[in-house]
Structure formats: C-alpha cells, structure tokens
Nucleic acid binder design. Structure first.
Lengths: 196, 196
DNA sequence: GTGTCAAGAACGAATGTTCTTTTTTAGTTG
DNA sequence: CAACTAAAAAAGAACATTCGTTCTTGACAC
C-alpha cells in the first residue's frame, strides 16, 4: 500500500523530467551526467532511482516529452477550414516557440536516435504521425482547392510531402544553429516556395 | 629534429581521424571514448597523444573532415552553365553519397555544436560559405533566367534562400533518420517546389 | 648514441548505480 | 485526537567501473 498518492508520484516524476530537460538543453543529451540531473533537481540519487530505472529511462521520458508535443499542434488544425500546405507547415514550426521542445533539444534527440534504438523507434512513430497528419491536410487541399481527383491528389500529395517535411526540419536546424535566425523570413520563404 | 617525415606524420593523423570517424559513426560523437578510438585505430594511447592534444582535438579534426567537404561540391558547379536553384540544392544533397560525411555524422556534429563552442563556430563558417555559394548561383539565375534587375534579383534570392537551405538540411535529417529514405523522391519533390 | 616515436601500465577524477540509514507518510489503535 | 506502527521515500555515503590523460619504458631511425 503506497504511502503517497499516485498524483504525488507523477508530480515528482515530472519534476525530475523537467530538471533533466534543463540539463539536456544546457549540456547536451549524451554529455549530461546523473550528477547533473541530481544537482539540478535538488533531490538525491536515491530519490531519483525510486522514480526511474536509470539514466536511459530518464532520457526516454525526456525525449517523449520533447517530440510528443509536435502532434498536438497539428490536431488543432483539424477544426479550422481546410488549411493550405504552407499553413500546415507554418503551424508545425510556429508551434515550437514557447514549447518545451526547444529546437536545440530536438536536434539532440535526433542525434541520439542515430545511436540508441529506443529513441530511434520513438522518433519513427512521431514522424509517421506527422506525415499522416500532413497527408490528411494535403489531400483535402488538393481535392478542394486544386480541383484534383482522388488519384491525382494522391500523387500531388506524395510529391509535396518530402519537401514539406524537409522544410519543417530545416526550420528546426536553422533556429537551433543560428543565433540570429529570422523566423519570419523563413516562414515567408516557405510560403513562397509552397506558393501561397 | 623529427625522426620521421612530415608526410608520415600527416598520414598517421589521417589514420587516427579515420578511425575516430568510424567510431563516431557507430557510437555517436559524445558517446565515443578514447579507448574506442585507440582500439579502432590499432594504435596505443601514447601514439595518439603524440598526434593530438586530446579527445576534443580529435573531435574537431573529425568535424572539420565531415562538414568541410560540403563546400568543394558546390565549387565544382562554378564551371557549368548557370545552374537553377533546384540544381544547386540537388548537387548539395547528392554530393553526400559516397562522402565521409554520412548524414548521421552530420546530425551528430550539428547536435554537438549546440554544446561545444569550437564545433559551433566551425559550423557557422561552413553554413556561411554554403549560403554565399547559394547566393552567387541564385543571383545569376535570377538575372539570366528570371530577367530580374539587380535589386529584384537580390530580393528574390533573399526570399528563396532560407527554404533552399532548409530543404538541404531536411534531406540530411531524413536520410539519417529513416532507414528506407527515398532519395530520388526527395529530389523530385525539391525540383517540384523550386519549380523546375 | 642521441633524440623521437610508440607501447601500455598507471593515474586520479568522474561515471552510473546500489546500499544503508534516516526521515516522512498514512493508517491504526487506545 | 494523540501515540504508535509499518512501510515507503529520500538522503547521501559507498561501490565498482570507466573515463581521459600522463608517465615510464623500450624500440627504432638517423
């Protein structure tokens, strides 16, 4: 029989995850040590190991936190009137600001996925979700605004998809790498190449 | 007075760098240890520290090796007849295959740049070079094929630039992350959004 | 033989994790 | 409602291991 409520435990977990995210942001995913996380959280080693199995477990929780949020943004578009491809991609990118998922953290997660199976699989499912959402919106746009039949719309969407995803990824790379990244200019550029 | 020739020393350095690159590719930049590099190179700790100051020094050499090659490709375009933006971006991406700069390694370097000043500065200079090259080709195309005057060409280029760079970065991310990445489809998609 | 190179044992510091101890908690009893 | 209890959570010292680096030794080139 537990001595604290489930809510309390979950809150503690979130606390630790948040501290870990701050460390990952500052020092990088791989370079962050347990001591760093312990110090940042203000807790002790024993406390943390009561909530997570180990460093790998914390990293996965942090990665989930970081890349999971991207989907929610896209779902919100569902209610609005059929958005153009440029609007869909724009939403994906602007949703980043103010999120836990700082671009530099996303970059860290991507790099970690090259090396760690768990992160890679997590990343695949998220990218699959994003593509599915893009596909939904693009198809609708193709039929309603480009006046294409189902077959032509499918082809049009398939052609557009890689570049649309790539533009979103480029946004993340550039905003992470360049200190004076001009977000508005990038969005304008995206609108321009995706024509409207 | 050295007992071996300068060529011998440089060859040794390259040997070590190559071994390090193999390790970085397999285990990731941050997770690779000196023991890994020592074992992979077949040399000893003493030998390696005779050629590099330390791990940081090796990482920088590897990073230079990885991202430095991107420029050479672009320079080759200079001779050919004014390439279209799509051709420029395509060249940037296709040049990756068969290079030391495997996309997954580039991703590692980008992530490392978030954390290590030396790598970040190196990355900035490379990206600046790439943009400069893009700028050169885009301007020429704007004047010769879009019949724009200098001022309009500059604006046209500025609008196109962020997306063009982003598309190239998206290619790297996708080819690194997705096991079944369809390179040809991506290139077709780029040609499509950059119209021709 | 003198001066450089390579080998690999050796070093302290830092790593992720566990273990023991102390503190806190919720539930029970008087 | 106060005191007690059993159990769980937190603290932090302690652990073996691995880290990056240095040092000592022997081998080899000129």
């Amino acid at each position: 029989m537990p001595k604290v409520t489930a809510e309390y435990r979950e809150a503690r977990r979130d606390e630790i995850t948040a501290a870990a995210l701050r460390c990952f942001q500052a020092r990088g995913l791989a370079a962050t040590s347990m001591s760093d996380i312990i110090a940042e959280s203000g807790l002790s080693a024993g406390a943390i190991y009561g909530h997570f199995e180990g460093k790998h477990d914390i990293m996965m929780a942090a990665a989930r936190e970081v890349i999971g949020h991207r989907i929610a943004d896209l779902r919100e578009l569902a209610g609005e009137s059929a958005p153009s491809p440029a609007e869909v991609v724009t939403r994906m990118m602007t949703g980043l600001s103010g999120d836990v998922a700082k671009p530099s953290l996303l970059l860290q997660v991507w790099a970690q996925a090259m090396v760690e199976d768990g992160v890679r699989e997590l990343l695949w499912t998220v990218f699959a979700d994003i593509r599915e959402a893009f596909d939904h919106y693009f198809m609708r746009w193709a039929v309603e605004h480009e006046s294409l039949d189902e077959v032509a719309a499918r082809e049009w969407t398939a052609t557009l998809m890689p570049a649309a995803v790539g533009l979103a990824q480029g946004y993340i790379v550039q905003s992470a790498v360049f200190p004076a990244f001009d977000s508005a200019a990038y969005l304008a550029s995206v609108r321009s190449v995706l024509q409207q």
